[in-house]
Design a protein around this nucleic acid. Structure first.
Lengths: 271, 271
DNA sequence: CAATCTGGACTTATTGTTATACCATTCTAT
DNA sequence: ATAGAATGGTATAACAATAAGTCCAGATTG
């Protein structure tokens, strides 16, 4: 086996034909993920279209379309007679979020990224947000929709809900120019505690349009509740992040040496 | 407005027709996400098909198909003359991962969930894993593919890579019965440090088959490098998690009181 | 320079999506 | 009770997209 040729170890019989997603797009997704994760190293050459067609058990033209889509994304380059080559040096800027140093992380974000204020409206909260904010469903709160960019490329879509009594202590102008955490501090409700839930979701049309991704493509979703000195909720954030531009990074270490074969030990975050 | 009727605040003009994803599926995804996140409370009634068709600016039959798909997932119930009602009490068991108490979390998982050993093979590592393990690409390592279930429903797909010199200190039989962290301890390389990267990815055919989800559906992906006493990598895990059955939960608090308008403060995890 | 690899372009059968029109059931106001 | 107006369900048809077969063009390699 040639070291510069990717030896696809993909099980062919696993594409699902009973799906609304066309085959060529499924193949596109698989290959893109393999490229992004580094499982297919850059500068390496794919097997030919014919061979890949056999691998996936589809027609050659189906593979071709997937590869062409990758090429139009700039992830691979294709040349007659030479083959399809994984584009090297894909220096996509990547934002790294971190739990260890949440605030530093947010501050660095604030410095290195641009924030866009898309909308500010007072809305009645739905059940989920109401529960987190500790108010009755339907209560009016201030909803701000913001978008964060890195080098002019959007990577996160943020919907924040702030109780009216806190929100009325700053202006919409402030919102556009000042970090929200600072505004909350000034309003007398500094965020002291954060609780987060992290999942993955399909991009819905609203968010996908804002982030420039396809509807249904995977996004990292983070729901965050910020609480003040008395444990009172001061802010709820629903954040959606492009996984190709944003990644959460966590480093933990064990608190005490493990006992061989023993019970659970505890870990804590690095400082 | 009736309290039991969901007042859809969905922007109609945002469905993207220039995509491989059909309209009915985009609508399905949007509604499903709204139900799952709690934005549409359970027991509430949707507006009629006709009205929703206007909302999304599509034909009634397109909305119908989305709603039928939701119904066949058991998320809503539909009755002639009555309408479409969000199914209540969706007691889907959910596993909660946590960074704060990584090991406890893993131990609880080990107790409350079932682990399946799907495959153990010695394979040459790809570039990405090689880098994390600090070995040359192509070096042989032990790869174990495992699947974790909660109440017989799979929720995670785990691929672990262990250097051969560590792997040969335990048997495959051990692997099937004993937690991996315990095996590593016994092998003289207890995991003392963990580094994780969290993103979202589309399910590729291999993982989707193992987890029982559609190809292309969103999954939470966690890459974890475990290191020993001297910082030597002892294990690399590539984990894929079903977002409807697994969620990461993090609670952090600020280390010191913030200075109003001041510089960055630090946070750390709750203990 | 010829054989053979590579990807590209064209045509076509099939499938899937979406819309229009009409039917069945349930609820509600009379 | 009963009529009307909700609701969702079914049938048909136009249209678009997918995926396969076949032939063509450029590059590489001996």
């Amino acid at each position: 086996m040639d070291a510069t040729t990717w030896s696809g170890r993909l099980d062919p019989s696993l594409l699902d034909a009973s799906l609304p997603t066309p085959l060529y797009h499924q193949i596109y997704l698989v290959l893109r993920e393999n490229i992004r994760s580094g499982a297919i190293s850059s500068e390496s050459t794919f097997p030919g279209e014919q061979e890949m067609a056999k691998m996936f058990n589809v027609s050659r033209i189906t593979v071709k379309r997937a590869l062409n889509d990758l090429a139009s994304d700039g992830l691979v380059s294709r040349h007659r007679g030479r083959g399809t080559i994984v584009a090297g040096g894909s220096t996509i800027p990547m934002v790294k979020g971190s739990f260890d140093t949440l605030i530093e992380s947010l501050h660095i974000m604030g410095l290195e990224t641009e924030l866009e204020l898309l909308d500010v409206t007072d809305v009645p909260v739905d059940d989920s947000v109401a529960q987190h904010l500790g108010v009755e469903p339907g209560t009016q709160v201030q909803r701000a929709i913001r978008r964060r960019k890195l080098q002019n490329e959007p990577f996160s879509h943020l919907v924040t809900y702030v109780p009216m009594e806190i929100a009325k202590r700053y202006s919409i102008k402030d919102l556009a120019s000042t970090p929200m955490l600072t505004l909350l501090e000034r309003a007398g409700h500094p965020a002291l505690e954060a609780e987060q839930w992290i999942t993955a979701v399909s991009a819905d049309p609203l968010v996908s349009a804002a982030l420039g991704v396809s509807v249904g493509s995977p996004l990292l979703k983070i729901e965050r509740v910020m609480r003040g000195a008395k444990g009172e909720p001061v802010q709820v954030i629903h954040g959606h992040y492009r996984p190709d531009r944003f990644q959460y990074h966590v480093k933990t270490h064990r608190r005490r040496a493990p006992v061989s074969g023993g019970g659970p030990a505890t870990w804590r975050d690095e400082s």
